[in-house]
């Protein structure tokens, strides 16, 4: 059973979002997604300063046998990326909701967060995919 954190919002494409007090949000991929990919060997991240619209391609996660696009769950400007992933992509496998975050985005419209899946909705989606 994969770990789904109640305090986060999720995109149907398996990204999670955590809104901070300063109006920025951390983005990563869910425990389910990292598990399905297997050992990650490379993470391609957006550039700091890049403006993203929700559902834009924001990067790629690669394992040995697969590559999967990462989509921006919300719109906004990328203010930071997790540079540690350049040398240690396995952080995403080890701690998908913590040290394995991908990038941080200045959320243009917090209403977009409401349109994402809640933890319960996301669990339902995963159950229906099985």
């Amino acid at each position: 059973m994969s770990d789904i954190r109640a305090e986060l919002r999720y995109a149907s494409t398996h990204e999670w979002v955590r809104l901070e007090d300063d109006g920025t949000a951390y983005v990563g991929i869910s425990d389910h997604a990292q598990d399905a990919m297997g050992d990650l060997v490379y993470v391609e991240l957006p550039e700091v300063g890049q403006e993203l619209e929700a559902t834009d391609e924001a990067g790629v996660v690669e394992s040995v046998k697969a590559a999967s696009d990462i989509y921006a769950p919300v719109s906004g400007e990328v203010v930071a990326v997790n540079e540690a992933l350049e040398d240690t992509p396995e952080l995403v496998n080890q701690d998908p909701y913590g040290d394995g975050w991908l990038f941080r985005i200045r959320v243009a419209d917090t209403a977009e967060l409401e349109q994402l899946l809640s933890a319960n909705d996301y669990r339902e989606q995963l159950d229906s995919e099985d």
């Binding site: 060997v41 490379y42 790629v60 690669e62 394992s63 040995v64 046998k65 697969a66 590559a67 696009d69």
Partner: peptide, 12 residues
Amino acid sequence: LQAREQHIRRSK
């Protein structure tokens, strides 16, 4: 580095 290649990345 096979994730660059067509059999995995297909159109990308």
